[in-house]
Computed example of a mutant assay.
Amino acid sequence: MQCPRCNHHHTQKIGLSRHKRQRWMCMGCHRTFGDKDLRLIDPKTKALALAMYAEGIAARKIERLLHVSHNAVLGWVRKEVAGKALQAPTAKDLAVIEADEMWSYVGSKNSPSGCGGQ
Rank of each mutant, 00 (worst) to 15 (best):
M1I: 12
Q2A: 11
R5P: 01
C6F: 06
H8P: 04
H8T: 03
H9W: 01
H10A: 09
T11R: 14
Q12V: 10
I14Q: 07
G15R: 04
L16I: 13
L16P: 05
H19N: 09
R21A: 12
R23A: 08
W24H: 15
W24F: 15
C26H: 07
M27E: 14
G28W: 09
G28D: 06
G28A: 15
H30A: 09
T32D: 06
T32M: 11
F33M: 10
G34E: 09
G34K: 05
G34F: 04
D35R: 04
K36P: 14
L38E: 15
R39D: 14
R39S: 15
L40K: 13
L40R: 14
L40A: 05
L40D: 04
I41E: 00
P43T: 14
K44T: 12
K44Y: 06
K44V: 07
K44A: 06
T45H: 05
T45V: 15
K46F: 01
K46A: 03
K46R: 15
A49F: 02
A49R: 00
L50Y: 02
Y53H: 02
Y53W: 00
A54K: 01
A54G: 03
E55I: 01
E55A: 02
A59S: 14
A59L: 07
K61F: 00
E63A: 02
R64S: 13
L66V: 02
H67Q: 15
H67R: 13
H67G: 14
S69T: 02
H70Q: 05
H70G: 04
A72M: 03
A72G: 09
W76D: 00
W76E: 02
W76L: 02
V77A: 01
V77R: 01
R78H: 06
R78V: 06
K79Q: 11
K79H: 03
G83F: 13
K84A: 15
K84E: 11
L86F: 03
L86T: 09
Q87N: 05
T90L: 12
A91D: 01
A91H: 02
K92H: 08
D93H: 14
D93K: 08
A95E: 08
A95V: 06
E98Q: 07
D100A: 15
W103E: 09
S104K: 05
Y105I: 10
G107C: 10
S108N: 04
S108P: 02
S108D: 08
S108W: 01
K109Y: 15
K109I: 07
K109M: 09
N110C: 13
S111V: 11
P112E: 04
P112D: 04
S113W: 00
G116A: 09
G117P: 10
G117F: 12
G117N: 09
Q118D: 13
Q118L: 11
